[in-house]
């Protein structure tokens, strides 16, 4: 009896997935007359894809009776998520609001300021740029144990890790962004008798914004990863990384997935906010203009 309903769930899920796929195929081939409908279709397609993946996941887990220790169904994760909001909120506060945001602001700000500072010295630029590029490729996350040793178990050590991880991408991108304004434009500013500061604010910074936002976007995911992984090396009894590693040990996989869901949503919103600010600041950039007219 139970076996039959399980198989039914699997078949229903596969049917739903196939019909969603067919609907998507149909939607992308069609162009609607009104622009509103077209725009809705652009949003509906990926959403439908995501929902069908969730349904398929649920169906497969139930159909093949996969033990929830391995992979809990989405419904179970959702129930767990709703049931443990206070814990998740405390973890979110500890890891995201304290460690990630502080470290992100400090690291990006520091990278930006250092880039401005070495802007006037080509020698320093030539020395720091290759090193910065090199360090960006290194597994910087490895400094986490050292930072935990130096700054203690609480969120300060996570901030330090995040600062180190975000500093170099910001430095490298800002320096190359500040070099993005062409010679002609700089010569024009020179003929206007503009000071270094005026040239910076009116010409070179606006030209550098796309590069800087690129770094800000890269750093938004790096910061979250850095803070969570740093918690594996020692932490007080709160925090997303702590929760993940302890609940794995207790085989409460649904709690782990709930924490992952929170992290993913937080990361996506963080990224989305920066992307929105980018659109507002670099409204003149071709990639933004094209996206708007289509």
């Amino acid at each position: 009896m139970n076996q039959a309903t399980d198989m039914g769930a699997l078949i229903a899920a596969i049917l739903f997935w196939l019909s969603a796929w067919a609907l998507n195929e149909w939607l992308v081939r069609r162009t609607f007359r009104s622009g509103v409908l077209n725009r809705t279709a652009r949003i509906v397609v990926p959403v439908l894809f995501g929902v069908s993946i969730l349904v398929l996941w649920e169906g497969i887990v139930r159909g093949f009776a996969i033990p929830s220790v391995l992979l809990p169904p989405p419904s179970m994760i959702w129930v767990r998520l709703i049931g443990s909001v206070p814990i998740l909120w405390a973890d979110f506060q500890q890891t995201f609001l304290k460690a990630v945001i502080t470290g992100y602001a400090l690291g990006c700000g520091l990278g930006f300021l250092v880039a401005l500072a070495i802007d006037r010295s080509p020698f320093l630029q030539k020395g720091l740029l290759p090193l910065g590029n090199f360090v960006s490729a290194l597994p910087v996350i490895g400094v986490a144990p050292i930072m935990v040793m130096w700054f203690g178990f609480d969120w300060q050590s996570k901030v330090a890790v995040v600062v180190i991880m975000t500093f170099f991408p910001m430095l490298v991108n800002t320096v190359s962004g500040l070099a993005a304004a062409s010679h002609m434009e700089r010569d024009l500013m020179h003929t206007y008798a503009a000071t270094w500061f005026q040239t910076l604010v009116k010409l070179r910074l606006p030209a550098a914004w796309p590069f800087i936002f690129n770094a800000l976007k890269i750093n938004s995911t790096l910061a979250l990863i850095g803070a969570i992984v740093a918690e594996f090396f020692g932490t007080p009894i709160v925090g997303m990384g702590f929760r993940i590693s302890t609940e794995v040990g207790r085989m409460n996989v649904d709690m782990v997935w709930a924490e992952i869901a929170v992290a993913a949503v937080a990361g996506s919103i963080f990224y989305g906010v920066i992307a929105l600010i980018e659109r507002a600041v670099t409204f003149w950039h071709p990639s933004v203009r094209n996206a708007r007219t289509v």
């Binding site: 997303m240 794995v248 782990v256």
Partner: peptide, 12 residues
């Protein structure tokens, strides 16, 4: 998929 901090769920 990249906003999911995969490194964080690596232990799991």
């Amino acid at each position: 998929s990249q906003t999911i901090p995969i490194l964080a769920i690596a232990p799991m």
